[in-house]
Design a protein around this nucleic acid. Structure first.
Lengths: 118, 118
DNA sequence: TTTATAATTTAGTTTAAACTAAAATGATTG
DNA sequence: CAATCATTTTAGTTTAAACTAAATTATAAA
């Protein structure tokens, strides 16, 4: 297991958390990660990836011209579990927000109705 | 349970972690906390305490002129467990370091000897 | 070898956090 | 009430993190 202080420091940045989330379940190239966060430069993403790598929170392997990153979930231990819960909560919030939006466009149903799919 | 992002942010600072450690097992007045970290001003300590309070990581109660703080261990959940482990490790490191120091002043004993007290 | 692609690194800038010194608050004592 | 103590708050400074733009490295394709 990693030195917790380093882990806390690493995940304190929303940017690094977002990167971790992106490469939590799949391996992505640095460029893919950057495309998912177009509000910053490629350089900025690369620097954060380096920090995560130095902290031991992600793995990297070179494939042809690309460098593929993925989270070292096993190294994150309990912090990882908490990140997952946080991300799940975010999804839940989005879902909730969508439902709230729906209610704003029509009368609030008495009881939960089966949603029409689509 | 608290919003994890806020917890991560709060514990990312070594100063705030140190404060949490001080008030983990006992209630301390702001002034006591400051006396334990004389490298910063009272004002600085007070500001960090306010952050911890706003983040919901500590409780405060006023008693006479003092304000007594203590960690809300229950609110910290798994992060709290990790902090504890981190602090235990620190103690262990100190102990180890002391033993190493001892070996530098004399021949390394074959097996652990009972320490002379004082 | 030249050109293009993928990423990293560097140097300098912006931004935010932590801090200090001093002023303000609020309870307690004389 | 004034004086003191414990603490907080404010305004301004220092320091560190994140960022950008541009230069650099490394791989692959033409």
């Amino acid at each position: 297991m990693l030195h917790e202080a380093a882990v806390f420091q690493a995940i304190a940045s929303p940017r690094r958390c977002e990167i971790l989330r992106l490469i939590w379940a799949e391996e992505l190239a640095a460029g893919d990660i950057h495309r998912a966060m177009p509000d910053v430069t490629f350089g900025a993403v690369s620097l954060q990836l380096r920090q995560l790598l130095d902290a031991g929170l992600v793995r990297m392997r070179a494939e042809s011209r690309s460098r593929l990153y993925r989270a070292r979930r096993e190294a994150l231990g309990a912090v990882g579990k908490m990140l997952e819960r946080m991300w799940d909560d975010a999804l839940w919030r989005l879902k909730l927000e969508a439902e709230l939006e729906e209610t704003r466009r029509g009368p609030r149903p008495q009881a939960r109705r089966k949603k029409k799919k689509g």
